[in-house]
């Protein structure tokens, strides 16, 4: 279970304090599909970064199964992210000089292991996402939809419990967006992954079991 308690993140801009998040408390059960919505600047990305252990909150705590993320050392936090969280980003962020399968293997490298076995796992993941025939393609040789599916495969590389997706359909046309949402929904329903989705899209939030609305850094529903 993810337990966010009284989370506040304050930035100082032009000598003024701005609350990106203010006193946000949320509980998300394992295996949930949650969508975080709200207008631009409402604190969606800040919430996602806080959940991913990527930004130090000003106040409050983020607990994963009772473990406060921000009590961990930087290396423990990196290891936690590597094993527990899979990130899917709006612009995919694939490494351009690596092939699809090599991109999928990137999160596996810090854990070590036999190279051939790691490659087999990565190929299996690509196969599950319908990309087995594109495994040796470089990102520039893939369509946008295929690139996002490679990014999802990369997020699943270490079999994380939680998928954090930042506007995963933001760069896709409606048909491709449906395709990617199907993949995420499948991961949630059939593989019991907790999916937390930041989105502007009503189409995306309609798939979620929980919809969290943020406005000016505060949870409004």
């Amino acid at each position: 279970m993810i337990d966010i308690r009284k989370l506040t993140k304050t930035y100082t801009r032009s000598q003024q304090q701005v609350h990106a998040l203010y006193d946000v408390s949320i509980k998300i059960e394992a295996g949930s599909f949650a969508a975080v919505t709200g207008p631009s600047g409402s604190g969606k990305t800040t919430l996602l970064l806080s959940l991913g252990g990527l930004i130090q909150p000003s106040k409050g705590a983020v607990n994963f199964n009772g473990q406060n993320l921000y009590s961990l050392s930087p290396s423990q936090l990196a290891s936690f992210r590597n094993r527990t969280i899979g990130f899917v980003l709006q612009t995919f962020n694939l490494v351009p000089y690596l092939t699809a399968v090599e991109n999928v293997m990137l999160p596996m490298l810090p854990l070590g292991g036999n190279g051939a076995d790691l490659k087999k796992q990565a190929v299996n993941l690509l196969d599950r996402l319908g990309l087995s025939d594109r495994k040796d393609f470089f990102p520039r040789e893939l369509s946008i939809g295929q690139q996002q599916r490679v990014a999802i495969a990369r997020a699943l590389a270490n079999e994380p419990d939680v998928i954090l997706a930042d506007e995963p359909t933001g760069n896709l046309d409606p048909a491709l967006a449906e395709e990617i949402l199907d993949v995420l929904e499948d991961l949630n329903k059939n593989r019991s992954k907790t999916v937390i989705l930041v989105t502007h899209s009503p189409q995306a939030s309609a798939r979620a079991g929980i919809v969290l609305k943020l406005r000016e850094g505060m949870l409004v529903s």
Partner: peptide, 16 residues
């Protein structure tokens, strides 16, 4: 920068 940020995001530590 973007690539390094991505690697840190997916769990690479500073030592990597």
């Amino acid at each position: 920068r973007k690539e390094i940020g991505t690697l840190i995001t997916i769990g690479w530590g500073r030592r990597h």
